[in-house]
C-alpha cells in the first residue's frame, strides 16, 4: 500500500515535471535566432503547391515561398538558418502549430476568423477562390449541380462553402450531397470515376489535377468564395509574425515573388492561373 502511494506520487511528479519543462518559453523569433533552424510545415499531396515530383523531390509553390521567407529572415538575423521541412496534412496542419511542432505552416491555408482563434496568420501571400471541377461538357453553371454529388476534403473551408452554395441554390439534401474525403487524390479519383458530379476546392488545386488528363475536365461557373491564403503562425507571437510579413512584402517589391509565381502558375505551366491581385504593402 505504501509503495503504491509512493509510486502514484512519483508518477504525478514526473507528469508535472514533463508538463512544465517542455513548455517552451520565449518568442519564436528568439528561438529560431538561437537554434539557427526554422521548422516549416508543408503539405505533401497538393499539386502544384507542395508535392513529391517524379524524382520523389519535395517541390512546389508553397515550398519555394517558404524557403524564400526563411532565407530572408536569416539575412535579417545576419546568419544562415537551416530549414527543416515537416509533412502536414489537413488533420495536422493546425495542431502542429498550436503545439509548437512547427514555426510556420505554408499549407494552402485560407485565413479564417474561426481559425484565427487558435493560431495567427501572415498577410495574404496567395489569392485563390473556390470553383467546381467537372467532366468536360456536362455542366455549365452552378445550378446544374443541385441534387448531384460534390466531393470535398474533410476539415477544409471549401467543404462548408460547397454545402452553403448548394443550400442557397435550393438543394434540400445539401449536407448529404457534399461528400468529404480525407485527401485530394481521393476526391479526384471520385470525380474521375463519376462517383461525384463535381469536385469543389480552391481553383489552383483543381487546375493541378485537371492537368493530369488534359482536355477531360473543366472548371464550371465563377468563384463562389474568396480564399486568401496566409502563412499559419503561432498565436500571439508578433515579432515572428512581423518578420514573416516583412519577408513576404520584400519578396513582392524586388520581384522574387513573381518569379516564383510564374515558375508554378505562369502562362508556360500546366497550371496557368493569371495574377490579378496585389500583395498588401505597408509603407
Amino acid at each position: 500500500m505504501k509503495r503504491l502511494i509512493q509510486g502514484v506520487a512519483l508518477s504525478f511528479c514526473f507528469i508535472l515535471l514533463l508538463g512544465t519543462t517542455l513548455c517552451f518559453a520565449g518568442t519564436t523569433y528568439d528561438k529560431v535566432n538561437k537554434d539557427g533552424v526554422v521548422r516549416i510545415g508543408l503539405m505533401y499531396n497538393s499539386i502544384p503547391a507542395a508535392y513529391f515530383n517524379d524524382k520523389n523531390e519535395w517541390v512546389g509553390f508553397d515550398v519555394d515561398i517558404a524557403e524564400e521567407v526563411a532565407k530572408r529572415i536569416g539575412q535579417e538575423m545576419g546568419k544562415e538558418i537551416k530549414v527543416e521541412r515537416v509533412k502536414l496534412n489537413n488533420k495536422t496542419r493546425i495542431s502542429f502549430l498550436t503545439s509548437g511542432r512547427i514555426d510556420m505552416s505554408t499549407a494552402n491555408m485560407t485565413h479564417k476568423r474561426e481559425r484565427d482563434r487558435t493560431i495567427d496568420f501572415s498577410i495574404t501571400y496567395f489569392f485563390d477562390g473556390q470553383k467546381i471541377l467537372a467532366k468536360k461538357g456536362l455542366y455549365t453553371k452552378h445550378e446544374d449541380f443541385v441534387g448531384k454529388k460534390i466531393a470535398s476534403m474533410q476539415g477544409t473551408t471549401s467543404e462548408k462553402n460547397a454545402i452553403n452554395l448548394l443550400k442557397k441554390l435550393g438543394d434540400a439534401n445539401a449536407e448529404k450531397n457534399v461528400i468529404s474525403f480525407q485527401d485530394e487524390p481521393s476526391c479526384f479519383l471520385a470525380l474521375q470515376q463519376d462517383k461525384v458530379a463535381g469536385w469543389s476546392t480552391d481553383s489552383t488545386i483543381l487546375l493541378g489535377y485537371a492537368a493530369k488528363e488534359p482536355g477531360k475536365y473543366e472548371l464550371v461557373g465563377d468563384f463562389f468564395s474568396d480564399e486568401p491564403y496566409g502563412i499559419g503562425l503561432p498565436e500571439n507571437d508578433s515579432d515572428w509574425r512581423d518578420a514573416v510579413n516583412f519577408a513576404i512584402q520584400d519578396m513582392w517589391t524586388d520581384g522574387t515573388y513573381m518569379n516564383i509565381y510564374n515558375k508554378w502558375y505562369g502562362p508556360d505551366t500546366l497550371y496557368y492561373f493569371p495574377m490579378t491581385e496585389k500583395i498588401e504593402m505597408w509603407p
Binding site: I15, L18, G19, T20, L22, C23, F24, K87, T92, S95, F96, T98, S99, G100, R101
Partner: peptide, 10 residues
C-alpha cells in the same frame, strides 16, 4: 501535446 506541452513527430 496537452500532457507534454509539445508535439512529438507523427
Amino acid at each position: 501535446p496537452i500532457v507534454t506541452g509539445m508535439q512529438i513527430d507523427v
